[in-house]
């Protein structure tokens, strides 16, 4: 924009500002410049508005919308997967708990059965032992009675032997027994 194109511009270019003021008017406020600028403003602005509102902006809006939808879809999918995972975990924990209670039941049953068997065996052997004890006690009692019975015989014999030794007289065992 350095070189002037006609005489009128040459004037304003070379003149000092205040001189230009009263000569061709200050260009931004010069009414001669209004019509061409307004007409071209109308043309260019209308063209730009048409291009943007019909082509550019809907396209940008579409892409942004699409991205928002896509992100929302992905988030929804992630949410669905998460709840599915949670359900699977819940199911797993449920079956784990079931298995645990079942195992507990089996263990308790087995324990009870075994305890019962042990009890039975114990009771049997106790009974056997008791019978044997009773038998042994009977034998001891017999032997005691026998022993006690022979004590008086031994005593009288011993006494007659002692007497014979002491006085040289034979005392029959029966007699000794009578004196005892």
């Amino acid at each position: 924009m350095a070189q002037p194109h006609n005489a009128q511009q040459h004037n304003t270019e070379t003149g000092v500002p205040h001189d230009a003021g009263h000569k061709g008017a200050f260009p931004p406020l010069d009414p001669n410049n209004f019509a061409p600028q307004l007409i071209w403003l109308a043309i260019t602005f209308a063209l730009l508005y048409w291009l943007l509102s019909k082509i550019a902006l809907p396209r940008i809006g579409e892409v942004i919308e699409e991205r928002r939808d896509r992100i929302q879809r992905d988030l929804d999918a992630a949410e669905a997967l998460k709840s599915e995972t949670e359900r699977a975990i819940r199911d797993y924990e449920q079956s784990l708990a079931d298995a645990r209670t079942k195992a507990g039941g089996i263990a308790r049953e087995t324990r009870e059965k075994l305890a019962q068997q042990t009890d039975n065996k114990r009771r049997d052997s106790e009974a056997q032992v008791a019978a044997k004890i009773a038998e042994a006690e009977g034998r001891i009692a017999d032997m005691k009675a026998n022993a006690l019975a022979s004590v008086s015989d031994i005593a009288s014999e011993t006494a007659s032997a002692i007497v014979a030794k002491l006085i040289g007289d034979n005392v029959s065992a029966a007699e000794a027994k009578k004196h005892l």
Partner: peptide, 30 residues
């Protein structure tokens, strides 16, 4: 001249129904 930069340059003189529709440097930049 600090005003020189605001000068309107008439590039293509045009006439639209009697109106001055000259293509100027302002129009060029728009």
């Amino acid at each position: 001249d600090p005003i020189h930069q605001f000068e309107i340059k008439r590039i293509v003189p045009l006439d639209l129904f009697g109106l001055d529709a000259t293509f100027t440097n302002s129009a060029l930049f728009m």
